[in-house]
Design a protein around this nucleic acid. Structure first.
Lengths: 144, 144
DNA sequence: AAAATAATTTATAATCATTCTAAACTAGAA
DNA sequence: TTCTAGTTTAGAATGATTATAAATTATTTT
């Protein structure tokens, strides 16, 4: 399965995206792995430079990540702060967010149970339920 | 209580913040109201210009909002996208986020029940539980 | 109350992430 | 092979936020 990218080609085609060299490189970097990958655009750019010989322009990384997100290959994570994080785990799950370090840690879906929800406003549908648990050091008070 | 700002002065003093003209103006705009106020820095700047005669520089609005946040007067809301929202409701509650319009809607704490939580990593403490329910129009599919 | 001090405010510049633009390039169709 | 629309690209433009350093103000000390 790894080192075989026909399934990437097929997925791209079925989303109406041409399987270009750049998109396939991104697919390999993002999806040919066991673990969930949390990343910012900047992270991802650096990882591409480190793990492949391909040079992909910043604009293309942005374009591709957004295309992948719009087609459900990636999720954007809701977080405080100015950084936009994405997640290769598109199944439903939640996150710890460490306010001190900026780290994100996956929480398996079954480790959080939301047992009551309000109904969506008229004409709207709930598309995603995200629980973020913000962490800070035990000893530390809130003031700066 | 409204039109009396001694309590604002006291609160600022007890946080080690000098009760300056600018900070008191911000306190009045933010806290002398019944309803929760969701805002971006830009929103807030415009509201100050509209509802008061004071001119407060953009840098001061940033500084003050961050000071208020660090002292627990305001919360920053976790959201997708590049805009940073703050919330005057510092008691625990949650949000609908409308992906089409960017609107934020409060959800009362009692309308969501999180009945199971993971324990925090060693040395860390859970500081905040935030549930974000993303909304989209009923009829619309995910693709762009 | 005046002088000293430390915090605060301010305009502006700098930075950073992201989007836009328009030209060059490429995949797939004819 | 040629054509066409989709894609990539470098660099410019934008927008939010942070940094800087001088002027101002609140509070403390005298």
């Amino acid at each position: 399965m790894i080192n075989d990218f026909k399934h990437h080609v097929n997925r791209l085609r079925s989303s109406g995206l041409r399987p270009t060299k750049q998109r396939l490189t991104l697919c390999k970097v993002l999806f040919d792995r066991k673990e969930t990958f949390h990343f910012t655009i900047d992270n991802l750019k650096k990882r591409i430079e480190k793990t492949t010989k391909s040079k992909i322009s910043l604009a293309t990384v942005y374009n591709t990540v957004h295309a992948f997100k719009n087609n459900g290959y990636l999720r954007e994570i809701s977080l405080q702060g100015n950084k936009t994080f994405f997640d290769t785990n598109s199944s439903s799950h939640h996150h710890f967010y460490d306010q001190d370090t900026g780290d994100l840690i996956d929480i398996k879906n079954e480790d959080i149970i939301v047992s009551k929800l309000p109904s969506a406003p008229k004409g709207k549908k709930i598309k995603q339920i995200e629980v973020t648990l913000s962490l800070a050091n035990n000893n530390q008070n809130q003031k700066k």
